[in-house]
Amino acid sequence: MKSESNLEKVLSAGHFAFTGELGPPRGTNAEEVRKKAAFLKGNVDAVNITDNQTAVVRMSSWAASLILIQEGLEPNFQMVCRDRNRLAMQSDILGASAHGIKNMLCLSGDHQSFGDHPMAKSVFDIDSIQLIGMVKQMRDEGTFLSGNKLDEPPKMFIGAAANPFAEPYEWRALRLAKKIAAGADFVQTQCIYNMDRFREFMKRAVDMGLTEKCYILAGVTPLKSVGMAKYMAGSVPGMDVPDELIERVKGAGKGKAAEEGIKIAVEQIQEFKEMEGVAGVHLMAIEWEHRVPEIAKMAGVLPRPVV
């Protein structure tokens, strides 16, 4: 075991993993974190805690991760390269590990121009692939990036993101291979709506032998409304929402779009359970944590394995 995290145990025991996501509050409201966490408890194996997502300032991801641990859930601590240099990253990794955080997701981070401080200076001292390598070095070699020895390595289960939908398509599996070579133990994909494209991506990953080296969790975000579907299709870079899917949500009729969105997500999860190379699902129910229990139930992923 690399980390002894619950997520690692679930995956290495061969179970189909099911992870959730929680966005920290725009303030010190710990109660809000606890409230959201309550909906996820027992329904997921680990919970991604986003790191200033969309470049909007929120409670720091490690701090919200600690609240999750207090609540008896396992966090997947997200870290982006936008806001910290290599010194800050390494010290946060040590601190996170010392407080019992065992999973990390290494990301580039949305550009600051999207967020609430668009004129901020970004860092990008190292990129997401280099971050993966750095965490692996700290864990496996017990050294800092500098090569100096550290006292008690951080035992992290190392995650990365993959976007199967951004062009050039041929590059996506190659980039995934690069992340795995850097040290990714698991990968969570961008929200999947174009199932054809994702099947192709997975076939390529399987053919390249990548699924032998790394657990791939398919990203699912239920569509709450026609507006959200259109927004995802038109305004979120790297997102691929086929027109048929928007039509399907629209066709559900007034007041029923959300139910249809959930139905689509459940169908997707059921297909992922059978899809070669897919080791689990990462459910990003954005500001919809309270719907996670029913989605998990409908998708037949409950009860979560105790390992």
């Binding site: 990129d127 692939i129 690069k178």
Partner: peptide, 14 residues
Amino acid sequence: AKGLYNGPCGGTNK
């Protein structure tokens, strides 16, 4: 825009 050395990132958009 992110000065990446191992890109393109997932934000690349057509």
